[in-house]
Write a protein that binds this DNA or RNA. Structure first.
Lengths: 164, 164
DNA sequence: CGAATATATTTCAAGCTCAAACCTTTTTTG
DNA sequence: CAAAAAAGGTTTGAGCTTGAAATATATTCG
């Protein structure tokens, strides 16, 4: 706990708030920024590709693991509930973008994989997505972006998922 | 557009990626961090207060505007669709945490306000919330948190909502 | 004034999300 | 081996979310 007491600095400057207030402020700003970018992405994915952010997220995860992912691994990577992924994969499968492949030795599990069509569709979306992010975060220099990445990583790496 | 060309730096270091890749990386980290904190908040709000993040968000907005907010202003502040707020306010009203007050001169609009009970309930939740954020973001020093706040603000302030 | 337009909000359908309950299959262990 | 426990997934119920359509009231302007 690197939390300094509520009044570690009695001679506080005008705008010097206690640590918890500063962090709260940061959180609110961070949340607002994230929502703004998410909203823009969602709108553009809908407009240009008639898809949604969760679908994009699932496809992105599958694109990173070419051998496919089990449902549980998928929900682990995306950090959403397993019941959640079921529905999204169902819909993607209906459209022929992903397939569920039976795992040889285990009749419970199935491996989800992008179809060829899924790969092609995702490649287009990913290109657009990268460009959109580049634009939405254009106020951040590459160096600054790298610094932010690294700092966020510290928070994120407190416990991590890394499926086979 | 402060976007340098894809190969502005031909002598790139090992880990020096083009701007759009750096920003993409930053975005993914930022999203992951945000989701992690949101998940923790959601879980704790449920466990300790039997409430949800959207409900907390609505109450937080109303707490900031003591004179109440119109539905449209509320959805503007929270940056969610107006149809969305309707349902959340409905449920909060059922529990007596907020009220809809008729606006004198306009029979279309109504002002949403925290009830006394709502104020009391929210005060407790807000205290816990601030402590949770302080803990979840303990890796960030107050100075760092301030810096992040300011940088995010730049992105956020591209267009802003500020209701009466 | 009255028609067109704009504003405030709700309703709706579809999809996302979670936690909990529930199957089924596998693994553990008494 | 058989019972118990664990693991992989799906279903369910409630709530959140969006964009679009619907409703009702206000305002504009011809």
């Amino acid at each position: 706990m690197a939390v300094t007491g509520p009044d570690a600095n009695p001679e506080a400057q005008t705008r010097d708030l206690p640590a918890s207030k500063e962090r709260l402020r940061m959180w609110l700003r961070m949340l607002k920024s994230t929502r703004r970018v998410e909203a823009a992405l969602r709108e553009r994915l809908r407009r240009d590709f008639a898809t949604t952010l969760p679908r994009f997220d699932v496809m992105a995860a599958l694109a990173r693991y070419e051998d496919g992912l089990k449902m549980s691994a998928l929900s682990g990577v995306l950090r959403v509930s397993n019941g959640n992924v079921t529905g999204i994969v169902d819909r993607l499968a209906e459209e022929g973008l992903v397939v569920r492949v039976q795992v040889p030795g285990d009749r419970r599990a199935s491996l989800v994989r992008l179809t060829r069509k899924g790969q092609e569709v995702f490649a287009q979306q990913a290109r657009a997505h990268e460009a959109w992010i580049g634009e939405l975060l254009e106020d951040f220099t590459p160096e600054e972006a790298r610094m932010f990445s690294d700092r966020f990583d510290a928070v994120t790496h407190k416990d991590e998922e890394d499926p086979a």
